[in-house]
Simulated scan of single mutants.
Amino acid sequence: MKKAKKIKHSLYLIVALAMLVYALPLISFSGGWSWTSAFGVAWALFAFLVIGAHLHYLLGVDEEKQKTLDRIKAEKLRQWQLKWPEEKQRSQEHM
């Protein structure tokens, strides 16, 4: 499952890069700023955003964060399980 997601993100990254490489030379700034050049710049910025998102996923930045969160959750669960017998004992003493 994980490998299929990486392949999908790699494919989308390649497609976005190809579109950007094709479109960047076609954006013309020779006539100054016009609606066409403004659209080209906005489109290129969105393309860079898509490329950055796919690179973020492929480089595994989220995996490190997820591992850290999993360790924290496991520690909290362990602490809660250690606390459980104490609370059970206290409730029996009050009865």
Rank of each mutant, 00 (worst) to 15 (best):
I72H: 04
D70G: 01
L58Q: 01
S91E: 06
L20V: 06
L55D: 01
L13G: 00
K83N: 11
H94S: 09
A23E: 15
E64Q: 15
Q66M: 09
W80E: 14
A47E: 00
K5V: 13
R71F: 08
K65T: 12
G60I: 06
V15S: 11
D62V: 02
F29C: 02
V15F: 12
K65S: 11
E75T: 06
S34M: 01
D70K: 11
E75Y: 05
I27R: 01
E63W: 07
R71G: 14
P25D: 02
P25A: 01
L17I: 15
G40W: 01
V15Q: 12
K76P: 00
F46C: 15
D62L: 05
F39H: 12
L11M: 05
L77D: 15
I14Y: 13
G40V: 00
Q89G: 03
L17H: 04
L13T: 00
K83F: 13
H54N: 03
E86Q: 11
H56G: 01
W84I: 06
T68Q: 14
M95P: 02
A38P: 00
L11Y: 10
W43C: 09
K73H: 13
A53D: 07
E63L: 11
S37L: 10
L69C: 06
E93F: 10
V50D: 02
R78V: 08
V21P: 02
D62M: 03
A16P: 04
K8N: 09
E93Y: 05
R71V: 13
W35C: 03
Q79N: 12
D70C: 03
L49D: 07
F39Y: 15
S10L: 15
L77W: 04
K65Y: 03
G40N: 00
L11S: 09
G40H: 00
R71W: 07
Y57M: 07
A74L: 09
L11H: 06
K2Y: 05
V15C: 10
R78I: 09
L13Y: 00
K67S: 09
Y22M: 10
A38L: 11
E63Y: 02
G32P: 02
L49S: 12
Y22W: 14
L58P: 01
A23T: 07
G31D: 12
I72A: 07
K88R: 13
Y12G: 04
V50N: 02
M1D: 11
L59Q: 06
D70Q: 13
S91Q: 13
T36E: 07
F48W: 03
E63T: 10
K65D: 12
K73G: 07
H9F: 10
M95G: 14
M95K: 08
T68V: 10
V15D: 12
D62S: 05
G32H: 05
Y22I: 08
G32M: 03
D70W: 09
S91A: 08
A38I: 06
E75W: 08
E87I: 12
V61R: 10
L77S: 12
W33E: 07
M95L: 15
K8F: 08
Y57D: 07
E93A: 13
V61K: 12
K67G: 07
S30R: 09
K8V: 06
T68L: 10
K67H: 15
A4D: 06
S34W: 00
W84L: 11
Q89M: 10
K2N: 11
S30Q: 09
